[in-house]
Amino acid sequence: MSDAIVQTALLRRLGARLELRMLALALIVFVGLSLASPFFLKSNNLLNLLDQSVVTGIVSVGMTFVILTGGIDLSVGSVLGFTAVLMGLTMPQYGIPAGIAVAVLSGAGIGLFSGFLVARFGLASFVVTLGVMAIGRSLAYICSGQNSISDIPPQINDLVYTPILGVPSNVATLLVLYVLAFLYLSFTKGGRTIYAIGSNPEAARTAGLGVLAYSILPYVVSGALSAVAGVLLSAQILSIDPLAGTALELDAIAAVVIGGASLAGGRGSIIGTLIGVLIMVMIRNGLNLLGVSPFWQGSAIGGIIIAAVLVERLVSTRVRA
């Protein structure tokens, strides 16, 4: 093979690095917003930005796992709400650690339920998680008695704002989760199996990979992380609303897709998802700073999602050709 071919292959590989393309997009948004609003670059706004990323960011990690297998998890928002309510009910009597454990374990349990139905019986993940989404929200209402729970121990607030190496602990949690997820997906057998299942489940099966277990795992991760996000959200606002997390699944799916993942599975990366989350949060934040009506923000975000995916499709087909 001649040098020229190797070189173009290298160039193509660099161009094909979707994270790089998405990072460029994030930078453009960042620079654009800095120019448009004098408040955007203020340090307290930047911290605010990270703070606002935590809930969507953590949920998007689980969503990335699920989408990589070719599935989707619509239940993340209502799982967040329901598990937060469970935590709120447990905590006054049994303490903070018990409350958190109940929330995370029940989130994982719900994920196990959805994942089992999807992987074992071949049901469409869209339908299963749609059902779980409705059930979760209804149970959240029932368990909370339709009211916000506000008698949670105020010490839980430390979970969010204790600085770790100068970073608020909720942001630190977010970053640690992204690093762990990145390492898992890139360097372990389970992570590569998740990619292989999404790319070609039949080939994964005939190569002897553990298709059933690793088709279920992403839903468990997604359920558990939704609960973690719920814990941090409740700790932040010291109140638990049964409506918490409504429409969160849309933001998470949007972040993963902007991050370059294919909804057909097999393609995507956790770094891309992080960039997708940041783009989403920056745009929301910037529109607020610019005083755009909240009613227009939905249109803006929706338009940007479609544009990002369209541009990505056009670019990636060119790179491949």
Partner: peptide, 28 residues
């Protein structure tokens, strides 16, 4: 195409797919 190739994997990782499933332990 349907039963052997994982299209989103590099050639190297496709080559290593049997190794991956034979391997015990979490690493690659």
């Amino acid at each position: 195409r349907r039963q052997s190739i994982v299209p989103d994997f590099s050639v190297r990782e496709n080559l290593l797919l049997g190794h991956l499933s034979a391997r015990r332990g979490a690493g690659l």
